[in-house]
Amino acid sequence: MTANPPLLAVEQLTVSFRSGRRESPAVEDVSFTLDAGETLAIVGESGSGKSVTSLAVMRLIPDPPGRINAGRILLNGKDLLALNDSDMQRIRGNDIAMIFQEPMTSLNPVMTVGTQIAESVRLHQGRNTAEARQHALDMLRRVQMPSPEQRLDQYPHELSGGMRQRIVIAMALACNPMLLIADEPTTALDVTVQAQVLDLMRTIRSELDAGVLLVTHDLGVVAEMADRVLVFYAGRVVESAPVRSLMRRPRHPYTLGLLGAMPRLSTRGGTRHERLLEIPGNVPPPGSRGPGCYFAPRCAYATQECRDAQPPLEEKHAGHLAACWHSDELEEPA
């Protein structure tokens, strides 16, 4: 490690949501770092806290009902949680940009595509209208939009899902952000269009040298895009490792279970018409979690120790962390 701070450092972040009189944690004690030029994937199932974590970095947690209870979020060493709203507004869009799953939710249906892309450079970089429009056109070319001149004056509903996601990416990149947060960027897309968008994201990542925080549930997308991976379960990080190390030799039973539950193409080692490995049961809702490991009720390796005490996230192997008392007993995935 060098003396320079990492691009992004999240330290002991805890976020909770209030419903009625009860406050339940959505994210508990999450820490990680991300360097420039690196892609860190956050994987987990619904309710694991992966999206809440990415929204917290943007300070977009709706408050109320949400609240960041503890922790620090450092961008180049500067604590974002200590900023006032207008300073944070300057960082959003300028230094940090975000891409969501459903492009239509981040596009204004009554504004042309060109105006929307130009808006961010006008606001953040103070360019005039003509310059901004030219910049918007350049951005459309950069995201390999077919017939870009014509697209500038079209409305979002006139475009396909894949093209809309390109527009959102163009908007995100308009101010050359140093951190790009992509929350399920290809989940709503068809597989052939997903391949195009992933390809585009790879190209852009190498051009920008930005850090990418990729939130996804798809381990295939993780393997294609990520350098390192955080596995979330019930609001906590249960495993953190370089992507190869994680896929080859997961050290947490939940990660092992996810890999086993995923159907694979037979040309890629899958088996046809056999039972998939199941993880029995469901993710425990916040509030019904015991003092021990949250995964224990669904875990084949669980012992009394697991039910009594939360295992710490510890290094099990160079750069490979897991929160499990039984990491050494896990078998390698089939």
């Binding site: 295939g220 992507v243 896929m247 890999l259 040309t267």
Partner: peptide
């Protein structure tokens, strides 16, 4: 088939 992401980083 070629577009399906595969969970092998060395693919």
């Amino acid at each position: 088939l070629a577009a399906v992401p595969v969970d092998d980083p060395d693919d």
